[in-house]
Nucleic acid binder design. Sequence first.
DNA 1: AAAACAGGCAACCGCCTGTTC
DNA 2: AGAACAGGCGGTTGCCTGTTT
Length: 261
Amino acid sequence: MGKKRPCCEKNGLKKGPWSLEEDQVLISYVSQHGHGRWRSLPKLAGLLRCGKSCRLRWTNYLRPDIKRAPFTEEEEKLVTQLHGILGNRWTAIAAQLPGRTDNEIKNLWNTHLRKRLLCMGIDPLTHEPFATSNGPALAPAAQWESARLEAESLQPGASSDHFLRLWNSEVGEAFRLRARGAYVSSTSSIKGCCDSDMASTPAAKIGKGETCTSPTAASSSSDELDDSSDSALQLLTDYAFDDDMSFLADHISDYYSFPSM
DNA sequence: AAAACAGGCAACCGCCTGTTC
DNA sequence: AGAACAGGCGGTTGCCTGTTT
């Protein structure tokens, strides 16, 4: 990799919050010319901004498909559980939440969800309870990640979207069969896990406006699971919290030995 | 009422990867 | 093949605002 020049000339470029006028200039330019060529865009559009800054402003704020509404409980739950599977891969997580940006999700995680897990006595890094007496067994999320990494090693170049392919494969089917029975108890075990502990821990004060109650309001209709992508993903992410996923590894090799997927 | 504090979030920064020439 | 370019990603910062004392 050669030495890189700065993405833009530093001198004379504005930093800090965007003004309404700048926003309008950027929106107007992008709507007329489309985005891309971010480095030259500021000059062409007449903005005294770095190209990166323009891209960020567009992708994180001005894009027309961005939801500006607060995160719903379902979205928060999904983010939490996808984080358990994907880690800090915010763009991968954001890809599962239409209208949400990686930055938005990252902020949500850092300001709300991470603290909420701490409140619940769950390590936000491993998504495993802090106090365990079960020895060094891999956390479910780690098991899934391990299986995924193994899959990648078997098929170099594989990427995180294999997660979805896995879901639609034998592996996913095996998982679904196994998870179906555990789903109800899984969600109910999350619900309320924090309620009794909260008041007695220093962490109870974490997060102004945070009620520190369970992020889940587990639906009692989960016994009627279908295989639509939404419910499937929910099932996977719910399940990843509480149960052993090592069985998946048994299926990974077979899955990737298929001639084409 | 005002100062101090804490949290939320937009934006910046540096690094990395993919593409083009 | 390798240098330069372009864009993406995740971590961090700093300002603004709401809350507490």
